[in-house]
Write a protein that binds this DNA or RNA. Structure first.
Length: 912
RNA sequence: GGACCCUUAGCUCAGUUGGUUAGAGCGUUUCGUUGACAUCGAAAAGGUCACUGGUUCGAGUCCAGUAGGGUCCACCA
C-alpha cells in the first residue's frame, strides 16, 4: 500500500480520480427498478457563462445531494446542460462580428445563425468543463442544450398546443422595449433603478383663452410631440371648466389637444394635470384607449426621435432630445420650472439601459395552471427551503400578468407560425389569426412553404427553459422518453437555485410540469420537483453583489488551484447557512483547505501507527474491535461518532448543509484529532491496547470519510483507497453504502459493544481538568511542553478518575510526574473536579500575595455563580415548573460549585 | 406604498421546538518544532446578543413597537 505523503497535494489527486470516475461510468444514472431514483436537473447556465462563485455554491450543493444519495444506495442522476440564452449569446456573437466590422444584418439571418452555432461549438459551454474541475458528478452523457433538435421540438410542441388551447394570442400592446437589444422584454427582465434626472414643469396655453395656461410635470419633455391630450381628475374643482377645452402643444408639430377627465389622475401630484402620451407610457396608453386617442410614436426602435417629433428634434437620441426639448421649451416660454428629480426607471436587465415603453405587436401567453401551481406549494407537495420564499412565489402568482413570449431576435426558437404570403400581419384580427387559410401554426410548417412567410420573432429563452425538467428526459417523444428513463426519473427530487429566478424559472417550471406531465395521475407525480432549495447570494467583503463589471468576483479556478476543489467546496458550504446571503471570505476557503490537510495527516498518522489490518468492509473493521479492551476514551469517541452521524443525518434531512459540514469539522478536528488521537499515542505504546485502538481509529476514519465524501469527494476517495477501505477497481463514490446512525449502533450491539455513557461523560470531565491544568501552567509561566511535577491532593473518588488515565494525562498536561500527596507550601495551586493540583517547581517562588489574589478572584467568581444558582433553586415556581433535567443540572452544578468554593476557602486560609 | 430578511466577540457569521456560566473561524496576545499535521498544538484576552416594552419560574430565542442596513414587489407623471 502506498504511504501517505506529508501534505495533501490536491491537483494530481483531483485529476486522477475524476478521470477514473468518468472512465468507470460512475456518474451514469440508469433505470434500475430495484433502487429508488434520485434526480437533480442542473439549472442550465447560459451557454456563454463562465464559472462564478454563485455557480460554485449552487453546484457544490447539488453535487453534495447527489453524492449523498448515491451513498445511500439510490440511483442518482444529475443531468447537466446549458441554456441558449437568447439575448446574451446573440450579443456576444454580434460583438465579435463588430470587431470585424460586420453587422448581423449584413450577414442575414441564416448566415448569422451559422456564426452563432459555430461560436457555441467552439466557445460555448466552457462552464461545464469548469464544473468538472469542481468535482461535479453529472451524468455528462446526458448533457442537454435548449436548442438541441429534440428539445426544440418540445418547445415548439408546447407553443402549438398552448395556441390551440387558446392560451397564446397575438396583441398590440405596450411592452418593455430595449433600444439596444432591439427587442421586447418581459416584465421580469426589467430592473427598476432609482435614476437622477430632472422634472420639468411645462405650461400649455388654452386655445380659446390665450394667456391662460395649464401646467403639467414631466420627466420626459422630449415626448411632448407625442402628447394627444392633457388629463385631469373629473372631480378636480380647479379644472372643472377646463375639461373639453383645447390647449396648444408647445413642442413638435403644431396641434391643439383636448383637456380630458380621467380617474387615473392623482390630484396630489404636481398640478394635478397629466400630459397624455399614449405611445410612450403605459398609463397614458390606457388613458388613450379609454378616450379613443391616437398614439403618436415619436421614437424609433433604437430610441431615436423620429419625424413625428418635429424637425427640431428628429434624429436626436432620446437623452439628447430631452435636453434639447427643455431648451426649446425655455425659448418659447413654456418651461415654468426645471428641478433635479429622482425617480424609478426601468432598465433592461441585459443591456443595462433604460427601457422604452413601446407599442408593438407581440405574442402573449396567459399562464396555464396558475391555481394548481399555487396549490402545490401552499399544500406542501413542493416544499421550499427556506419556506419563506413560498410567500414571494404565491404573491407573484396572485398578481400574475400575461407573459410576453416573443423576442425580436434571431437566436432562439423561431415561432412556428406562418402567414399567408401577401397578408399584412399587423392587421390580423384574433379570428383571422385562427383561420388556417390565413395563418398556419404547426411544428413543421406548411407543406408548400413558398406560399407562406414564417414569423420573424423567436421565443423568450425562458419559454424553453421552463420545460427543462421533462424535455431533458425526452418529452414529448415517446421513444426518447423510454430511452432516457422519463418514467423512472421524473419527477425530479430537488431543485437547487437562487431566489432571483423564482419567477423567471421556478414558478414557470411548476406550471409547465402541471400542464404537460401525467395529467391523469396524482399531483405528486406531476410536479417537476419535490424540494426547492434556495441558495443565498454570494457577496464580496463589502456586501456588494459579485458581478463582472465590479470585478469583485474571484475566479473559482484560481481558488481551486490554490486551495483544491475539496477545500473550496468545504469552505463555501460551511459558510452558507440556509437561505442567507453569504459574504465571501477567502480565509474560510483556506480553512477548508486546512481541514483537508488535517484529514490527510490524521490518516497518515494512522498509517504510520501500525500495520494496516482488514479494513475491507465495515463488518471487518467492527470485528477487530475488542470490547474487553475498551477504555473510557474508546467509549467516548464512539459515542461522539454516533452523535455526529446522527447530526449529519438530521442536517441532510433539513437541507442544512453548513450544519453538517460544521458538525463533521468539529468532530473530526476536536474530538478525534485533538483528543482521541492524542490519547492514542500513549495507548499505542502498549501492545495490549494497540490493536483495539487502531481498529477504533479505522472505524472512525471510515465513517468520517463516508460522511465527508459528498463535501470533499476527491480527498476522501483517495484516502479510502490508501487506507484499504476499498479494493482496486471499486469506488467510494459508487460502490459503498453509508451507514446511518442506527445501523452503526446496531453493529455495536452485534459485537456487544454497548457504549458506556458514563465513561463518555468521564472523558468530558477529564478534558476539562486537562484544560484547566494547562491554563494553570500557562498562568504560572510554565511552558506547555515543559515536564512539570504535580502533586495532587485528592479524595479516593477523585483519584479514581485520575489514576487509570495517568499515562494519557502525563502526555496531555506535559507532566513529568503526577503523584498523590499533600500540598506543598508556597506552590501554585489549582482546584479541579479531580482534586487540588500543586505545581512543584524546580525553583520555588513564594509569591504568596499573587497566589492569594488569584484565589480570591476565583472565590469571587464562584460566589457569584453560587448565588445565582441558589436564587434559581430557591424559586418555588422554578422548582415546580422546570423540567427535571434542568432542575437536576442546576443542583449538580450548585454542589460542584460549592465543593470548589470550599476548597478555595481552605487554600486561602492556609495562605493566612 | 406593500412584503420579507438582517442587527450576537475587532472582522465574518452559527445559535431549529425558550433551560446551567452565549459559540465557531479568522484576527490579536502568550507559550510551544515530543516523528501525523506550523496548512500545526496549548492557552489568554474580547460580547449589558441594536433599542424599548411585554409574555414566562426562565428570553439571543416568543410577541409588540422603535432605530439602522438590505432584498423583492408596486403604473405616481
Amino acid at each position: 500500500m502506498a504511504s501517505i505523503t506529508k501534505s495533501y497535494e490536491s491537483r494530481d489527486v483531483e485529476k486522477k480520480w475524476y478521470a477514473d470516475w468518468q472512465a468507470a461510468g460512475c456518474f451514469a444514472g440508469k433505470v434500475n427498478p430495484a433502487k429508488q431514483p434520485y434526480t437533480i436537473m442542473i439549472p442550465p447556465p447560459n451557454v456563454t457563462g463562465v464559472l462564478t462563485m454563485g455557480h460554485v455554491l449552487n453546484n457544490t450543493l447539488q453535487d453534495i445531494l447527489i453524492r449523498r444519495a448515491r451513498l445511500e444506495g439510490r440511483e442518482a442522476m444529475w443531468l447537466p446542460g446549458t441554456d441558449h440564452a437568447g439575448i446574451a449569446t446573440q450579443t456576444v456573437v454580434e460583438r465579435e462580428l463588430r470587431k470585424q466590422k460586420v453587422s448581423r444584418r449584413d450577414l442575414g439571418r441564416e448566415k448569422f445563425l451559422e456564426k452563432v452555432w459555430q461560436w457555441r461549438d467552439e466557445k460555448g459551454g466552457i462552464i461545464l468543463q469548469q464544473l468538472q474541475a469542481l468535482g461535479a458528478s453529472c451524468d455528462w452523457d446526458r448533457t442537454q442544450f435548449t436548442m438541441d433538435p429534440h428539445y426544440s421540438e418540445a418547445v415548439l410542441t408546447v407553443f402549438v398546443d398552448l395556441f390551440q388551447k387558446g392560451h397564446i394570442y397575438r396583441g398590440k400592446r405596450m411592452v418593455n422595449w430595449c433600444p439596444v437589444s432591439l427587442t421586447a422584454l418581459s416584465d421580469e427582465e426589467v430592473i427598476m433603478k432609482p435614476a437622477k434626472g430632472f422634472i420639468y414643469e411645462v405650461r400649455y396655453e388654452r386655445v380659446d383663452a390665450p394667456g391662460q395656461f395649464i401646467t403639467v410635470k414631466t420627466t420626459r419633455p422630449e415626448t411632448i410631440p407625442g402628447d394627444v391630450a392633457i388629463a385631469v381628475h373629473p372631480e378636480d374643482a380647479r379644472y372643472a371648466d377646463w375639461i373639453g377645452k383645447l390647449v396648444r402643444r408647445p413642442l413638435g408639430p403644431a396641434a391643439e389637444i383636448p383637456i380630458i377627465a380621467d380617474t387615473a389622475i392623482d390630484r396630489e401630484f404636481g398640478s394635478g394635470a397629466l400630459k397624455v402620451t399614449p405611445a410612450h407610457d403605459k398609463v397614458d396608453f390606457e388613458i388613450g384607449q379609454r378616450h379613443k386617442l391616437e398614439a403618436i410614436d415619436v421614437l424609433d426602435a433604437s430610441g431615436t426621435l423620429n419625424e413625428f417629433a418635429g424637425p427640431e428634434l428628429a434624429g436626436m437620441d432620446r437623452f439628447a432630445g430631452r435636453k434639447r426639448a427643455a431648451e426649446l421649451l425655455q425659448e418659447r416660454g413654456a418651461l415654468v420650472k426645471e428641478e433635479p428629480y429622482e425617480n424609478n426607471v426601468g432598465y433592461s436587465e441585459r443591456a443595462d439601459v433604460p427601457i422604452e415603453p413601446r407599442l408593438t405587436w407581440q405574442w402573449w401567453l396567459r399562464y396555464p395552471q396558475v391555481e394548481a401551481a399555487k396549490a402545490v406549494v401552499r399544500d406542501g407537495v413542493i416544499r421550499f427551503h427556506p419556506e419563506r420564499w413560498s410567500k414571494v412565489y404565491l404573491h407573484w402568482l396572485e398578481n400574475i400578468q400575461d407573459w410576453c413570449i416573443s423576442r425580436q431576435l434571431w437566436w432562439g426558437h423561431r415561432i412556428p407560425v406562418w402567414y399567408r404570403r401577401g397578408l399584412d400581419k399587423e392587421q390580423l384580427t384574433e379570428a383571422e389569426l385562427r383561420d388556417p387559410e390565413k395563418v398556419h401554426i404547426s411544428l413543421n410548417g406548411p407543406a408548400d412553404k413558398t406560399d407562406w412567410v414564417q414569423e420573424e420573432d423567436v421565443l423568450d429563452t425562458w419559454a424553453s427553459s421552463w420545460l427543462w425538467p421533462f424535455a431533458t428526459l425526452g418529452w414529448p417523444n415517446k421513444e426518447a422518453m423510454a430511452q432516457r428513463g422519463y418514467d423512472y426519473f421524473y419527477p425530479t427530487n430537488t431543485l437547487v437555485t437562487g431566489p432571483d429566478i423564482i419567477f423567471f424559472w421556478v414558478a414557470r417550471m411548476i406550471m409547465a410540469g402541471l400542464e404537460y406531465t401525467r395529467t391523469d395521475e396524482p399531483i405528486e407525480r406531476r410536479v417537476p420537483f419535490k424540494d426547492v432549495y434556495f441558495t443565498g447570494i454570494i457577496r464580496d467583503g463589502q456586501g456588494r453583489k459579485m458581478s463582472k463589471s465590479l470585478g469583485n468576483s474571484p475566479d473559482p479556478l484560481d481558488l481551486i488551484a490554490k486551495y483544491g476543489a475539496d477545500g473550496l467546496r468545504f469552505g463555501i458550504v460551511s459558510i452558507a447557512p440556509q437561505g442567507q446571503d453569504i459574504r465571501f471570505q477567502e480565509d474560510r476557503i483556506e480553512s477548508g483547505k486546512n481541514f483537508c490537510n488535517k484529514l490527510w495527516n490524521a490518516c497518515r498518522f494512522r498509517q504510520m501507527s501500525g500495520e494496516m489490518a482488514d479494513n475491507s468492509s465495515r463488518a471487518a473493521v467492527v470485528a477487530r474491535l475488542d470490547a474487553a479492551k475498551f477504555d473510557d476514551d474508546d467509549h467516548a469517541i464512539l459515542d461522539r461518532l454516533l452523535a455526529t452521524t446522527r447530526a449529519v443525518d438530521q442536517a441532510f434531512a433539513n437541507f442544512e448543509f453548513n450544519t453538517a459540514a460544521q458538525a463533521l469539522y468539529g468532530f473530526f478536528w476536536n474530538d478525534f484529532c485533538d483528543w482521541y488521537v492524542e490519547v492514542s499515542k500513549a495507548k499505542l505504546l502498549d501492545a495490549e491496547m494497540k490493536d483495539n485502538c487502531l481498529a477504533i481509529q479505522d472505524l472512525v476514519l471510515r465513517q468520517t470519510l463516508l460522511m465527508l465524501h459528498p463535501f470533499t469527494p476527491f480527498i476522501t476517495e483517495e484516502l479510502w483507497r490508501l487506507l484499504g477501505y476499498g479494493a482496486e477497481g471499486t469506488f467510494l463514490m459508487r460502490d459503498v453504502r453509508i451507514e446511518d446512525s442506527s445501523m452503526l449502533a446496531t453493529d455495536f450491539g452485534v459485537r456487544d459493544l454497548r457504549i458506556d455513557l458514563a465513561a463518555a461523560a468521564a472523558v468530558g470531565r477529564l478534558k476539562t481538568v486537562a484544560s484547566e491544568i494547562r491554563a494553570f501552567k500557562a498562568d504560572n509561566g510554565e511552558a506547555a511542553k515543559k515536564d512539570s511535577e504535580f502533586v495532587v491532593e485528592a479524595s479516593d473518588a477523585q483519584w479514581a478518575m485520575v489514576e487509570p488515565n495517568l499515562a494519557k494525562l502525563h502526555r496531555m498536561m506535559g507532566a513529568s510526574s503526577i503523584t498523590r500527596g499533600t500540598l506543598a507550601p508556597n506552590a501554585p495551586v489549582c482546584v479541579t473536579a479531580c482534586g487540588t493540583w500543586n505545581l512543584i517547581r524546580q525553583l520555588q517562588v513564594a509569591d504568596v500575595a499573587g497566589e492569594k489574589a488569584r484565589l480570591t478572584k476565583e472565590r469571587e467568581t464562584l460566589t457569584k455563580h453560587i448565588a445565582g444558582t441558589e436564587a434559581r433553586l430557591s424559586n418555588e415556581v422554578f422548582v415546580s415548573k422546570a423540567p427535571l433535567a434542568v432542575l437536576e443540572g442546576a443542583r449538580k452544578q450548585l454542589a460542584d460549585l460549592k465543593a470548589k468554593h470550599a476548597e478555595v476557602e481552605r487554600l486561602l486560609a492556609a495562605l493566612g
